[in-house]
Design a protein around this nucleic acid. Structure first.
Lengths: 148, 148
DNA sequence: ATACTTGCAAACGCTTTGCAGTTAT
DNA sequence: ATAACTGCAAAGCGTTTGCAAGTAT
C-alpha cells in the first residue's frame, strides 16, 4: 500500500487552499482514498454519477484539474497515454510499482538516481521518472474477472 | 547520441513490412534520422510541408501510426502527456536522458532493475520505465533562443 | 452578501475515419 | 493491373470554456 492519505487530510488541504468543501468534493476525496491507485476521469465520473446522478463531466474535469494544481491529487500520463489521477502522496521521495490490472500503486523506496553510473557528461539532470509495471499479488491470485 | 539508425535501415524495414516507399516516407525517415530525438506530429507536419506543401495532417498521422506499429518508430507520451515519436533504437536494452529543451535523447546503459532492492513481495514485474530529464550540454551552452 | 461551484451547451485541439483519385510495385 | 497511398472532408474523442443559476462560507 501507499502511505495512505485520509479523507480528512484531503478536505483540510482543499479548505486551506481556499476551496469550498462541497458534497461532490467530499465524495471525490473518499473515492480516491478508497481506490488507492490511479483513476481516469471517466472512472471518477461513473462513480460520482452513482451518488449524484446529475454530475456533469466538466465538473469532474474541473475538480480533477484544480485539485491537481493544488497538489491534493497527482496527474499522470500512462505509457499508452491515458490521463489518470491519484491521491498525492507527498511524503518523501519514492517510486511506484503499478499493477496494470487493478492500477493500484505500491510504494518502493529504491531510487535509481542514487545508484546511477555510466551517466551523463555535461547533462544537467533536473528530474526523473521511474516506474515498475506488473501484476500485484492480489490480482495474480484472483485472475481478472472484470476483464472486458 | 543514440546508436543511430540510418535512413536506409528505415526504408528497408518499411519495404520488408509490405509498405511502399513513397517520397513522403523517405522524407519522414530522413527527418527522424536527422532529428535524433522526439518529434511531435506537428513538428513532422511542419517540416514535411516545407518539402511537400500539399501534405495533409492525416497522412502524417497515418504514417506515424503505421510506422510505430511496425516498430520503425517508437511512440511515447511525455510527462505532460504530449504524444511524440522517435526513430526506434532496438539494439540492446537501455534508457534515456531526455533534454527537455531540444528533446534530443541520449542513451544510458544503466538499468535500475539490475540494482533493485527493497522491492516487491508477490509482485510480478513485467515492465519498467526509467527516464532522466534535464538539459543537455549543447542547450546549456547556447541558452534557448526559440523560447516562445 | 459574497465569492466559489455547478450544469449546460458549445467550442476546442488532437487524432481517426471513409472515400475517390493517384501512385508504387 | 493491383494493392497501397494520398488528400479531402467530416467525424470522433477527451478536455476546456463562458455563462447564468445555485451553494458554501
Amino acid at each position: 500500500m501507499s502511505e495512505s492519505i485520509t479523507i480528512e487530510d484531503m478536505l483540510r488541504k482543499m479548505s486551506a487552499g481556499g476551496l469550498r468543501v462541497t458534497e461532490q468534493r467530499k465524495s471525490l476525496a473518499q473515492m480516491f482514498v478508497l481506490a488507492d491507485g490511479y483513476l481516469t476521469p471517466k472512472d471518477v465520473y461513473e462513480w460520482m454519477r452513482t451518488k449524484y446522478p446529475g454530475v456533469s463531466f466538466d465538473t469532474v474535469y474541473r475538480n480533477l484539474r484544480i485539485l491537481s494544481e493544488m497538489g491534493v491529487l497527482e496527474q499522470f500520463y500512462f505509457l499508452e497515454g491515458g490521463l489518470k489521477f491519484k491521491a498525492n502522496c507527498q511524503h518523501h521521495h519514492h517510486h511506484h510499482l503499478i499493477c496494470t490490472q487493478c492500477e493500484k500503486t505500491f510504494s518502493i523506496h529504491f531510487c535509481p538516481m542514487e545508484h546511477l553510473e555510466g551517466g551523463p557528461e555535461g547533462f544537467e539532470v533536473n528530474g526523473h521518472r521511474f516506474e515498475i509495471y506488473g501484476t500485484c499479488k492480489e490480482c495474480r491470485e484472483k485472475p481478472a474477472v472484470e476483464d472486458i
